Lab assay of single mutants.
Amino acid sequence: MALNTPQITPTKKITVRAIGEELPRGDYQRCPQCDMLFSLPEINSHQSAYCPRCQAKIRDGRDWSLTRLAAMAFTMLLLMPFAWGEPLLHIWLLGIRIDANVMQGIWQMTKQGDAITGSMVFFCVIGAPLILVTSIAYLWFGNRLGMNLRPVLLMLERLKEWVMLDIYLVGIGVASIKVQDYAHIQAGVGLFSFVALVILTTVTLSHLNVEELWERFYPQRPATRRDEKLRVCLGCHFTGYPDQRGRCPRCHIPLRLRRRHSLQKCWAALLASIVLLLPANLLPISIIYLNGGRQEDTILSGIMSLASSNIAVAGIVFIASILVPFTKVIVMFTLLLSIHFKCQQGLRTRILLLRMVTWIGRWSMLDLFVISLTMSLINRDQILAFTMGPAAFYFGAAVILTILAVEWLDSRLLWDAHESGNARFDD
């Protein structure tokens, strides 16, 4: 018995066209964080690309023209004298008006014999932002004059995390709450300039795509075929072959399989920071003279006294001054041990922890910024005066060393310790 099946006739004509040209192939790229070699397709503007294995951002879609970056830099340069030299806060102490600005706080630190601690604050609040705007201006002028731009481009990517104007702005709020127990506070004209400078700096850093600047100024022929001998440069993120001198053909720094002496430098910085954190938390970090009496505060006791007036601000200072430094030390110690013992479990967790400490590390400088600003506000000789204690130097040095330890660690070593050939990683 035959089955009668109805015929289905399409209502619209289906047209099949042959592909007349070869589909576009992607360029081969190595991930600078996990060293995976993959094919990167062509990316349009405002599109980002991520590593298929570790999800690290390979290409950032946010990109401004150099002219727009230069305009932002010149605007920031105009704001800087007002943000640093004009009063941020006014207080009335014992019937006398006192003005506080950024430069005055750094000068008070240096004047009291601790120039190293003052230079830490100076670099993060004044030096690094000033280098940022002058570097962008150098790129703008240098591109037109045919100057060598490689050193500036190499420095810009590392400079971003040292620009800490946003953290200093939080420190202004913390210092205001600490001082309000002794005097009446009012915002100064410099505060508005400083807030504007923070906003412009944040926007500029978020749109400063150094890798795209490398592509514009020093374009290189990408690798179009897969080759395990391809290496990625950690300076400019170019994937290719080393030249005859073993250097990256684009930025001219040595092109090595792994960062040289990464573990040794990381261990040295980490152990030194552990040693410095002990006096930083045991010795007094601030000293207040009130009517001839002397009151010393460690980091913890200062947080407890701050909690009596504002528990939320005390929580912020606790996280930045105690929780973050010790968390960074514990995480980095764990990561280094996992590399030495070739741990194969929990790779995803370790990668996330490394990215976390990379982002939060700079916030530990908050305590030094609060001390710097408070020193310029309260300084009335023996009637009422505020000065920093010996722990300030140890704390600042420990924070900087932990930042350097994270920067010096080559994250690809975590993958080397893991089993080879993993296309995915999980716990």
Score class of each variant (00 low, 15 high):
Leu230Cys: 15
Asp227Pro: 12
Leu93Lys: 00
Ile339Pro: 09
Trp359Asp: 07
Ile43His: 08
Gln47Cys: 04
Ala312Ser: 15
Thr110Asn: 15
Ala417Ile: 09
Glu407Ala: 12
Asn209Gly: 15
Leu40Asn: 07
Gln47Arg: 06
Leu373Cys: 02
Asp427Cys: 10
Ala312Asn: 15
Thr202Trp: 15
Glu215Tyr: 14
Val232His: 14
Phe82Lys: 06
Gly20Lys: 06
Leu165Asn: 11
Glu86Ser: 06
Leu66Val: 10
Met375Phe: 03
Asp181Trp: 01
Ile131Ala: 06
Ala280Gln: 02
Leu263Glu: 13
Lys229Thr: 13
Ser135Phe: 03
Pro325Tyr: 00
Tyr241Ser: 14
His237Leu: 13
Tyr289Ile: 07
Ala391Val: 02
Thr134Glu: 06
Leu283Glu: 11
Ala385Ile: 03
Ala187Arg: 08
Leu88Pro: 01
Glu212Asp: 10
Ala320Tyr: 15
Gly389Ala: 08
Gln344Arg: 12
Leu154Thr: 07
Thr9Val: 06
Gln186Asp: 05
Asn291Glu: 02
Ser206Asp: 08
Phe369Gln: 06
Tyr182Glu: 10
Ala320Trp: 00
Pro325Thr: 04
Ala397Phe: 06
Asn310Glu: 15
Ser135Asp: 05
Leu234Tyr: 15
Arg355Gln: 13
Phe194Ser: 12
Glu419Phe: 09
Leu130Asp: 02
Pro219Ile: 11
Pro24Ile: 05
Thr387Glu: 03
Ile319Ala: 15
Val170Ala: 15
Thr9Ile: 05
Arg226Phe: 14
Gly235Leu: 02
Leu208Ile: 15
Val210Gln: 15
Ser286Gln: 00
Ser308Tyr: 10
Phe395Ser: 11
Pro254Arg: 01
Cys236Pro: 00
Thr358Asp: 11
Met365Arg: 00
Gly142Ser: 05
Ala100Phe: 01
Leu77Gln: 06
Leu205Met: 14
Asp381Asn: 09
Gly188Asp: 10
Leu335Ala: 09
Ile351Arg: 14
Pro24Leu: 08
Phe318Arg: 00
Ala73Cys: 08
Ile167Lys: 03
Ala391Cys: 05
Val329Gln: 11
Ala417Gln: 08
Arg226Asp: 14
Trp84Glu: 06
Leu165Gln: 14
Pro41Gly: 04
Phe122Pro: 00
Leu132Pro: 03
Asn291Tyr: 15
Gln47Ala: 06
Thr11Ser: 07
Asp381Cys: 02
Val152Gln: 03
Pro32Ser: 07
Glu215Leu: 12
Gln180Met: 12
Asp297Asn: 03
Arg362Trp: 02
Tyr241Glu: 13
Gly188His: 09
Asp35Trp: 02
Arg256His: 11
Val357Glu: 08
Leu94His: 00
Gly246Asn: 12
Ser135Asn: 06
Ser305Cys: 05
Met164His: 07
Glu42Ala: 06
Ser65Ala: 04
Ala398Tyr: 05
Leu132Asp: 02
Trp214Thr: 15
Thr298Glu: 15
Tyr28His: 09
Ser309Trp: 15
Gly346Asn: 13
Gln55Val: 08
His207Gln: 10
Met76Gly: 03
Leu23Asn: 09
Ala73Trp: 13
Thr349Asn: 12
Lys178Met: 01
Gln47Gly: 04
Ala175Val: 03
Cys54Met: 00
Ala196His: 12
Ile253Ala: 08
Leu23Val: 08
Ile136Cys: 10
Phe395Tyr: 10
Gly171Asn: 15
Cys51Ile: 00
Leu337Asp: 03
Phe393Thr: 14
Ala272Phe: 04
Leu306Pro: 00
Val210Trp: 10
Val133Thr: 04
Leu368Asn: 09
Glu212Ile: 15
Leu89Tyr: 04
Ile116Leu: 12
Asp426Met: 08
Arg144Lys: 13
Gln7Tyr: 05
Ala71Leu: 05
Thr239His: 08
Met103Gln: 07
Pro41Gln: 08
Lys328His: 00
Ser45Tyr: 15
Pro249Asp: 11
Ile403Thr: 02
